[in-house]
Simulated scan of single mutants.
Amino acid sequence: MIVALAMVSTSAAQERGPVTNLPLPRFVSMKAAEGYARHGPGKTHRIDWVYKHRNQPLEIIAEYGHWRRVRDRDGAGGWMHYSLLSGVRTVLVEQDMLELRRNPEPSAPVMAQAELGAIARLEKCVLDWCRISADRRTGWVPKQALWGVAAEEIVE
């Protein structure tokens, strides 16, 4: 029984999209200022959700033709046309007044602060820290204070 669970975990970590051959799940951002998440992969399907924030991070969990199934931080989502999405990585700040530090260490000087719910560009991630930028401010923050990057992910 334990062996079967280990094999499932390994195959899930290596899952690739059937259309793009990119990893699933993976994070992207909204390219458009507004985008519809539909119940199924096609314009004839009903609209379940409307996203209204350019650069909002989303997670792609499935692919079908020109459509990507996405979910947001709250688990809501649906199928969106790929033209509404961008490979530019952004993150959502999940801690109020998150301190952006000069270096990836807790004792480094604070360069700025980010409010809860702020959207920032993801520049780089090491094991436990990510470098983000927003409003011409840049700094390092603990990875666990962000949504839009996997816990084990390294971004260069």
Rank of each mutant, 00 (worst) to 15 (best):
residue 1 M to K: 11
residue 5 L to K: 14
residue 7 M to W: 04
residue 10 T to W: 10
residue 11 S to K: 15
residue 14 Q to M: 09
residue 15 E to T: 14
residue 17 G to P: 05
residue 18 P to N: 08
residue 20 T to W: 01
residue 20 T to N: 09
residue 21 N to G: 14
residue 23 P to F: 00
residue 24 L to P: 06
residue 29 S to M: 01
residue 30 M to A: 08
residue 33 A to C: 11
residue 36 Y to T: 13
residue 37 A to S: 12
residue 42 G to K: 03
residue 43 K to R: 11
residue 46 R to D: 11
residue 47 I to Q: 11
residue 47 I to E: 09
residue 48 D to P: 07
residue 49 W to Y: 10
residue 50 V to M: 15
residue 52 K to E: 14
residue 55 N to D: 13
residue 57 P to D: 01
residue 60 I to A: 01
residue 62 A to K: 04
residue 64 Y to L: 13
residue 64 Y to M: 13
residue 65 G to F: 00
residue 67 W to S: 07
residue 68 R to L: 12
residue 70 V to D: 01
residue 72 D to L: 05
residue 74 D to M: 07
residue 76 A to F: 03
residue 77 G to H: 00
residue 77 G to E: 00
residue 77 G to S: 04
residue 79 W to I: 06
residue 79 W to L: 06
residue 82 Y to H: 13
residue 85 L to N: 03
residue 86 S to E: 05
residue 87 G to I: 09
residue 88 V to F: 11
residue 89 R to M: 10
residue 92 L to E: 01
residue 94 E to P: 07
residue 94 E to M: 14
residue 95 Q to V: 15
residue 95 Q to I: 12
residue 95 Q to R: 11
residue 95 Q to S: 08
residue 103 N to P: 07
residue 106 P to Y: 06
residue 108 A to D: 05
residue 109 P to H: 01
residue 110 V to Y: 07
residue 112 A to S: 10
residue 116 L to T: 11
residue 117 G to H: 07
residue 117 G to K: 06
residue 119 I to L: 04
residue 122 L to Y: 05
residue 122 L to R: 03
residue 124 K to S: 08
residue 124 K to V: 15
residue 125 C to R: 04
residue 125 C to N: 05
residue 126 V to Q: 14
residue 127 L to R: 13
residue 129 W to F: 03
residue 131 R to E: 07
residue 131 R to G: 02
residue 132 I to N: 00
residue 133 S to L: 05
residue 134 A to S: 13
residue 135 D to K: 09
residue 139 G to H: 03
residue 139 G to L: 11
residue 143 K to I: 03
residue 143 K to Q: 01
residue 143 K to H: 05
residue 146 L to M: 05
residue 146 L to W: 06
residue 148 G to E: 05
residue 148 G to N: 10
residue 148 G to Y: 09
residue 150 A to Y: 10
residue 151 A to P: 12
residue 153 E to F: 03
